[in-house]
Simulated scan of single mutants.
Amino acid sequence: MADKLKITLVKSTIGAIPKHRATIKALGLRKLNKTVEMPDNPAVRGMINQVKHLVKVEEI
């Protein structure tokens, strides 16, 4: 497992269901193509798995 994850929002949340919008907001993503670094743990992995169609993830 990597130490951190680089998460980038690659698709708009306009058509997403409210639960997915809330997950994106909880990950700290606000605008399209913006990136955040989060620790690699099961909680973050679960959030990413829920919105995997909206984000791109890289291990760093």
Rank of each mutant, 00 (worst) to 15 (best):
M1V: 06
A2E: 14
D3M: 03
D3C: 00
K4A: 03
K4N: 05
K4L: 10
L5V: 04
I7F: 09
I7D: 05
T8R: 11
T8P: 03
T8F: 03
T8W: 04
L9M: 07
L9P: 01
V10Y: 04
V10H: 08
K11I: 03
K11F: 00
K11A: 01
S12Y: 03
S12P: 00
T13Q: 09
T13A: 14
T13E: 07
I14Q: 09
I14S: 11
G15Y: 13
G15E: 10
A16F: 06
A16M: 11
A16Q: 13
I17M: 14
I17E: 08
P18I: 05
K19I: 02
K19H: 02
H20F: 01
H20N: 07
R21W: 01
R21I: 02
A22G: 08
A22Q: 13
T23M: 02
T23G: 01
K25L: 10
A26Q: 15
A26V: 03
G28C: 02
G28L: 13
G28H: 10
G28A: 09
G28K: 11
L29F: 01
L29S: 01
R30D: 13
R30Y: 15
R30K: 14
R30A: 09
K31T: 06
L32M: 11
N33H: 12
N33F: 14
K34S: 15
T35L: 12
V36I: 15
M38C: 04
M38F: 08
M38P: 10
M38L: 13
M38I: 15
M38D: 12
P39T: 12
P39C: 14
P39G: 04
N41M: 03
P42K: 15
A43G: 12
A43R: 13
R45D: 08
R45S: 07
G46W: 13
I48Y: 02
I48K: 05
N49E: 15
N49I: 06
N49R: 13
Q50G: 06
Q50S: 02
Q50P: 01
V51M: 05
K52T: 06
K52P: 05
K52H: 13
H53C: 10
H53Q: 14
H53M: 06
L54P: 04
L54H: 08
K56A: 03
K56V: 03
V57S: 04
E58M: 14
I60R: 13
